[in-house]
Design a protein around this nucleic acid. Structure first.
Lengths: 339, 339
DNA sequence: CTGAAAGCGCTTACAG
DNA sequence: CTGAAAGCGCTTACAG
């Protein structure tokens, strides 16, 4: 086992000072050609690589980004990380991933751990619990220490920082308008509990679209699903109670695919008897039979934009007090679950 | 903006030495009660947190694990990361994620970057290209520097290190045996190119099962799909060419769901006319209609085991030359795509 | 052209 | 009981 070689060892071996070795390897004009070549050859031979940790300590920057998300076994979040990783990597940054599991406490602990010098800045999506508690002290804390934070998807107005979002409300509105345009009159909504910011916004979009089209809003047609486990059960009860529904708009893939499954079970054919539109263009929508018409939500782009905002801020020392909110375009991906 | 406070600042403020502050905060018996309390109170007030980077440099360990995988927008790999992250976190370790995008060069670059002191050890699955080239110098290099590596899923016999795998061959065999048991006589195989280790093993299992059941092996019934993009096209041509096929065994979810889609298009009913078994119990198999019978592959468990092997090795200084290969149990999840 | 010194933020063996 | 010193691995302003 040949341990990693350090400047000190090279210096000793070559009988020069550490400074000389360091400068030679950075090709400083201060050092004589001959010495430089000798040192460089030796370093190459021993495969010298500077120690990142020492550099981080010296430069007071780690060139790594901390990412905190609610879960990773989730197509959208995985896609966002993919975008972050690729952008970050091309700028020499690394990515540290922490999962909050939708828990406030885990989110706080993870932030504090990472904020202890391990990273230069954060990219994050809030956990459900955090959105519910509306307690953002951990984020304010980190920002006040001068560490930039970029929020995406699940954001809050209570924090001033860069953000990357989609226009959830308009996207939902467009989806519902599309159903209306296709002749649907009775349109239901499968959504989450209100404290999930995006769920709330998508619900607002649904309501707005109905009003815009002069359709009656019937609160009974809005199903708020809290527990993912019993989602099929709840959707079944709901569809039974509203047999004359023409279509549903679901705020995520899971609700959409489950709605189709339940409809099938009840003998309704999709899209002939019943239409479904989902949200987030993931793997389920694509491979489901019938495949699902859905609102695209470009996670890759969101990840890249978030990484760009963060890195731009990190590389510009001037403290810019103006924060940006990037809105990523969405569009409807028409597939088989709508006529 | 209140910058993070350091020992030095506290020392100055309180007019004691840095050593005294450090010892007080670590509650050393060396220091007088009064001083300790004073320092601790002050530290609490200013929310002092030790700098991770400085600690890493001092202790020569970063308490972070480097994970290198081919892609992250992939249910199985995301699940493995999930397992790693949770186990690692409970032992105070962080996780750095790098993507190789199935590219040899990216895998090498990422390893070298991370090996430069950023992490204590690696958990990795080989990229396709690396498996094809059979060039593992970057891994040998890192191991010879004393940095432990744990490989999972896509491993190689050419490297001595801890490994976490499933018994791909036996699992495939079991799946095919199940089809035979259900009365299928003509069973096809949808697999990948041979250099992908797991694809090869699953192919071997398929062949073994046929032989075991005294069934004729027809090479024409084995479709090796290289390009994911044209996968539907290829499967269609294949199924057209073999209209009398009773079933196919697919080595991944994507091939399985696509086979069902194509079969449907050709007017075959699944599972009445045609059965499908997939590999990897992911989201597609679960939500597809019909849902897909599949070989489970417990990514969460694999991730946890891999993290355990790595952390055990990191925490035990004694250089253990005995490497473990953990084989995770698989089983068949029966669903709707088989009778 | 080369090297000693200071410093990034911390810990710890040792001296007083 | 407290503190100066050395050291983790590096860089760089400064002296010679």
């Amino acid at each position: 086992m040949k341990k990693k070689v350090t400047l000190k060892q090279i210096a000793k071996e070559l009988d020069v000072s550490i400074s000389t070795v360091s400068k030679s390897l950075r090709n400083s004009p201060e050092i004589g050609e001959e010495t430089k070549e000798k040192v460089q050859a030796f370093a190459r031979l021993y495969n010298y690589k500077p120690n990142n940790i020492a550099l981080s300590l010296k430069n007071r920057k780690t060139k790594t980004i901390g990412v905190i998300i609610p879960e990773i076994v989730h197509h959208f979040f995985a896609t966002v990380i993919n975008g972050i990783e690729h952008y970050a990597n091309s700028f020499g940054y690394h990515v540290m991933v922490c999962l909050s599991d939708e828990s406030f406490d885990k989110e706080v602990i993870n932030m504090e751990m990472l904020a202890g010098g391990s990273i230069d800045g954060f990219i994050m999506a809030l956990s459900k619990e955090t959105q519910q508690k509306k307690d953002f002290h951990h984020i304010t804390e980190v920002i006040s220490q001068g560490m930039p934070v970029v929020m995406f998807d699940r954001v809050t107005n209570d924090i001033f920082c860069d953000k990357v979002i989609i226009d959830d409300k308009t996207a939902a509105q467009d989806a519902v308008n599309f159903l209306v345009y296709k002749g649907m009159r009775k349109i239901g909504l499968l959504t989450t509990i209100d404290y999930v910011s995006v769920g709330k916004l998508r619900t607002d979009g649904y309501l707005q679209a109905l009003r815009y089209n002069n359709m009656i809003v019937n609160e009974d047609l809005i199903l708020k699903i809290e527990d993912m486990e019993s989602c099929e059960q709840q959707i079944e009860t709901y569809l039974m109670a509203h047999p004359d529904l023409d279509a549903v708009f679901a705020v995520n893939e899971l609700f959409a695919v489950t709605a189709i499954k339940v409809a099938n079970k009840m003998g309704k054919k999709v899209p002939e008897d019943f239409s479904v539109i989902g949200f987030t263009d993931g793997i389920i929508s694509k491979y489901s039979t019938p495949s699902i018409t859905t609102v695209s939500q470009d996670g890759l782009e969101m990840g890249k934009k978030a990484a760009k905002l963060l890195i731009d801020r990190l590389e510009n020392d001037e403290e810019d007090e103006y924060y940006t909110t990037e809105v990523i375009e969405t569009y409807l991906v028409e597939r088989e679950s709508t006529p």
